[in-house]
Structure formats: structure tokens, C-alpha cells
Design a protein around this nucleic acid. Structure first.
Lengths: 157, 157
DNA sequence: ATAGGACCTCAACTAAAGTCGAGGTCAAGG
DNA sequence: CCTTGACCTCGACTTTAGTTGAGGTCCTAT
């Protein structure tokens, strides 16, 4: 084992410290969410702030935000220099709005559920449960857990 | 157009009233979340309470609960008789707990995000953002948006 | 009776977020 | 020298939640 605490991290170290599988880190890199320097032997070396990027990615994931959206957000961090506190703070503020919105949605839904399904209401047209924000979703085929859920209200392109 | 307001619904009517595509209703039926009678000509006929089932399914979806879990819940409704108010209320109560838990998770996360990413904290081991419930997830291959998120805390089988 | 829409089945495709495995380097220890 | 462990790439596979299309039936109004 190499017990070096170098300035840079190997992918294995990043994986262990972040709790994210190596294969997932590869995947994130392929998606452009993460970047690395390569050594002479073609191995990845990550700067320290990658830890933060990964933490951010996972945090976003946990609340159901798709990687594409996370990628968009991260893309607005400077890629040349290491992001400053201010860069991160801007990003954090943006996500805070997103999370607030989601919490609000969820709360509304919970209340609608208690009022509505619990009470025996049968009308679909009137029901808050049935129309919780009328997302007229026909966006394409396949799984679309996110959009249908009407969840992300960060600037849509 | 048939303007009949019969006791039963065709799949087209159920689709329109619920806002769910016919293909999705087929899919739900295949997954056992929904059931129907067949006419002589092999067409589906739904009872009125299917509307409520579908609304429930979508509501659960919107908050990120996978169909399998919804199916489990719905399976505990009586299939022979039309579910009573009490049947639904039981179910609703169970979900309320689920939603409360999720809201709590999200809120915690939001706060951690503001404190932590905003402030320049770099330690992964200490960071609430990085370890928001330590889900040691290695459950199998493929997409697992739900389990990794550590989200559902309804009785696990 | 016949055209039109609504319905049926079934197979194939899409998309997200990864995992897994094969086949091949690289570096250090014995 | 050789083995062991970490790393590399690339392609195939997985799961969830559907959609799309082909090919065929049913029903109802003209």
C-alpha cells in the first residue's frame, strides 16, 4: 500500500474517500461531470476539489436530480482554475432553490394525499392528487423519472 | 364518440381521465398494478376505482417511489371487492409516513448543502453532505435510483 | 357494407445510471 | 524475473419505466 498523502488523488483513493465506485467515477468522467489529469502511464490523477464535486453529484442524485442537470450546473464552475468558495456558493444557492421547490412539492403532495385519498374523493378533475401541477409530459420515449415528476425548475434551456 | 357514462371505463376513457397514456396503463396491468375485466371482444373494462388506483400510482411516482413498491402497497388492497374508504385510508396512512420521511431527508440535505458546500468545507469524512445516512449500497447491477438514495423506509421484505 | 377510430398483442426500441468482465498496462515487492 | 494489485479501455448487460410500430380485430356511424 502506498500511504502517500500527495496533493493529487488516484481514482482508487477518490473512490474510497467518496464512497463512489470506480466504475461510476469513470462514468461521470465520460459524462463530463468530472475531469482528471493523466500520468505518464495513462492513469487518472484528481485534484482535491474533485472530492467536493463528487459529493455534490451524489447529493444531487440523492434527491433525484438527473446527472445531465448536475452536469449543467457543474459546467458553470470554472474548469481552468480550482473553484473558489464563491463559485461553489453561487452553485449552492441555485440548488437551494431547487431543493426548496422539491420540498414544497412533496409537502403539498403529502397533504393532498391525506385529504384526498383518505377521504374517499373520487373526482379526478378536481383532485389535487391527480393534478399536482399539470405537467403535460410528452417529451420522448423511455424512462423519464425526472421530467414527469415535474421536479426540476432550474432554468430550462 | 360514445358519450355513455357507463359504470365501467374503457382504457381510452381511463387514459383521458387520468392523464396517463394507454401504453402506460397496459404496462401497469402487465406489472399487476391494475386489473380489468375483458369484454366479449377482448377489450379491457375498468371499474371506477381504477381511477383512484391510477392516481395513487402516479402520485407515488412523482415522489420517486418505484412501481414495484407501489405494487406491493396496492396488492394489499382487496382485489375481489371494491376497496372501501377504510382500505384506502390504511394505505394512505402508510404512505404518509413514507412522505414524511422523504421530506425530512430532503430538508436535512438542503440545510447541509447550504452549510457545507457554501462554506468551503473540504472534509469528506465529517461532511453531512457526503454522508447523509451512509447507505452502503451494493445491491446488484443496473440503474438503482431509489435504493441508493436510501429513500424508502416502508417495511422492507 | 364499409371506413374510421379505438382496441388488441407482441416485439423492439429508448433512456438513465451504472456494473461486469475480458484483455491489456504499470509499478513495486519478493 | 515474476507475481500481485491497481489501473486502463471497451463492449455487453442490467433495471426501471415506459413508447413505438407492425399486424390484426372490434365497433359504430354513414
Amino acid at each position: 500500500m502506498k500511504a502517500m498523502t500527495s496533493a493529487e488523488l488516484t481514482i482508487g483513493q477518490l473512490s474510497e474517500r467518496s464512497g463512489v465506485a470506480v466504475s461510476a467515477l469513470h462514468f461521470y468522467e465520460a459524462k463530463g461531470l468530472l475531469s482528471s489529469r493523466r500520468t505518464g502511464g495513462n492513469q487518472r490523477r484528481y485534484t482535491r476539489d474533485s472530492l467536493r464535486r463528487v459529493a455534490f453529484i451524489r447529493a444531487a442524485q440523492r434527491v433525484g436530480i438527473p446527472l445531465a442537470m448536475v452536469g449543467e450546473a457543474l459546467a458553470r464552475l470554472p474548469d481552468a482554475r480550482t473553484p473558489t468558495r464563491a463559485d461553489w456558493a453561487r452553485l449552492s444557492a441555485a440548488w437551494r432553490g431547487e431543493l426548496d421547490a422539491r420540498i414544497h412539492q412533496l409537502t403539498t403532495l403529502r397533504d393532498a394525499l391525506s385529504d384526498c385519498i383518505g377521504c374517499g374523493c373520487l373526482s379526478m378533475r378536481r383532485c389535487r392528487l391527480a393534478n399536482p401541477g399539470d405537467i403535460a409530459a410528452t417529451i420522448g420515449p423511455g424512462a423519464r423519472r425526472f421530467d414527469e415528476r415535474g421536479a426540476c425548475r432550474m432554468r430550462r434551456p
